[in-house]
Design a protein around this nucleic acid. Sequence first.
RNA 1: GCUACUAUAGCUCAGCUGGUAGAGCAUCUCAUUCGUAAUGAGAGGGUCGUAGGUUCGAAUCCUAUUAGUAGCUCCA
Length: 634
Amino acid sequence: MLTVTLQDGGTKEFAPGTTLLTVAKTLSQKLGKAALLAVVNGENRDLTDTLEEDAQVEFITGESAAGLHAIRHTAAHVMAQAIKHLFPTTKFAIGPAIDKGFYYDLDSEHIFTPEDLVAIEKEMAKIVKENIKLERSELPRAEALAFFAAQGEAYKVELINDLPADAVISLYQEGDFTDLCRGPHCPSTGRIKAFKLQSIAGAYWRGNEKNKMLQRIYGTAFNSKEELTAYLTMLEEAAKRDHRKLGKELELFALMDEGPGFPFFLPNGMIVRNELINYWRAVHRRYGYEELMTPMILSRQLWETSGHWDHYKENMYFTQIDELDYAIKPMNCPGGMLVYKTKPHSYRELPIRAGELGIVHRHELSGALHGLFRVRCFTQDDAHIFMMPSQIKDVIQETIRLFDEVYATFGLKYHAELSTRPADSMGDEATWEVATNGLREAMEDFGLKYIVNEGDGAFYGPKIDFHLQDSIGRTWQCGTIQLDMQLPEKFDLTYTGEDGQKHRPVMIHRVVYGSIERFIGILTENYAGAFPVWLAPQQVRVLPISEKFQPYADQVKQQLFDLGIRIATDDRNEKIGYKIREAQMQKVPYMLIIGEQEAASGTVAVRSRSGGDLGVMALADFIAQLTQEIATKQ
RNA sequence: GCUACUAUAGCUCAGCUGGUAGAGCAUCUCAUUCGUAAUGAGAGGGUCGUAGGUUCGAAUCCUAUUAGUAGCUCCA
């Protein structure tokens, strides 16, 4: 007999060859039903595997992340089986579980439609109901190749051929369908209790745009119907917060056919934008930044010097002036370099922190445009910091602190990513190594957790990116800190050191908002359009009950207006309910209802967009509360 | 850029298999002066994204093109 040690420390004996599923069932009927995978001596295993020696065993259910992952992975196989039943000529590429569900990439003459998804779901339900076993087998490479080649599954053959020589080639069979897969999987299709197919999209084979574009079907699956419903409801709610929808409803910005990717900012959007800029200036002033502005169009020669002509040309717009080539700036840095060079610098001045709200133009692919999140013209809240090599760590830490402060003001959650040297890059290996380690150390000392994106850096240096979430959980890169070892060299920047000799400064590029446009998009979604008072396009609206109270309403309005409050009066001949409804929908933070009682006593009846009727108060009290709320950016 | 889908009044949308455009909201006018999410009545507004084609006849079918949407690729 074998001894199995369980999670709680208890032990139990089983005959060799007992499946893990049987072990789970023996422990309790409930566990037998809930268990999806097992961890045997620290290794993930299928429940259909057998035990051959003493082992430490832990069972995984759908309540854990690993269990949910298995459900989704198995659901992808179930979907593939269903598709094979309904569209037998379909060829299968890859079908993994992902963050919020699963997908399968397919190659088929048939173009899948939303109606097909309904039919596939039905077929999947049938397969789930049959509760078919998933059985793992391992094959020698030649046999596996022959197996898939016989079925015409060219993508699977290519995948196997690309596996390392010593790789274990495993297959999972569920009834009449067998797939190449590393596993692990749920023991049977009946474990897929709640799933939903969501969308059809294109995707390149192996993510390479030179390859054939396949059809990808996205779906999701959960441990229970309740969780699935909750998730789908959340998505519906999130759609209401989409900044493209709110941007139109709240008249923040507009995108027109006449300028794809070139947003128009409307009066309301300009207020949010200007408030963000005011705040930005205040923060940067405190952190020792100065501000400058460089031209939007600069000569070809400059872009050749900076390296953009060679490395970034595809994304740039060009023009000619007096028969000479010019480029519209896609980045602010070359201009910043020229400013640095306008005078000699001493080590005593460093670090120099030069900020610029720079409007840049980039020719993004048409299919990549996405509301304010991805545009072709945007304002970077840029800054270049020039320093001595010995100052790198302190400066980067200080920058991380600034970022953290700004994001906290908006209550935004973020995560950081470190990107290392890409294939198309300038400079030598050693310099890259030093720079990358500099970033890494600064983050670690600050206690900032990060993930690493190998080869994802800019052509001129490694970078730390800060990603913020939109309403449906997609993340967008906003802030970035990029170390640049190339430009100071290219532009021959120098400073005079303590020793009287010329030295090369190190520089970083950094943006906190990233682009003001993208940041406004993120904020709009995070606040669901209900901007805090300090950012709200209209902060207060006065609503007189009838014309009779207009004079007092004007008085109230004027007092607040003189204090710099963004205020308006709704003096239309409408009922109070109508005016309130409209102010609510426009997400005006405060409404002041003015009627006979208020006019007589010199008070205001305050209604907040979130808290409803706050009752009558003295105007002075309301002003005190309001100005406090604005000042503290609540 | 690629794959698929979508495109009708300012907005949200209806318009079956081709017979020549409709609703609600918004706008304007009139009446109502009414205390916490829609007062009533009336009026105006669209050559159905654009350009070709098929047809006696096209918002409806075909082709091209532009823009958008989902994703891929790429990126702040």
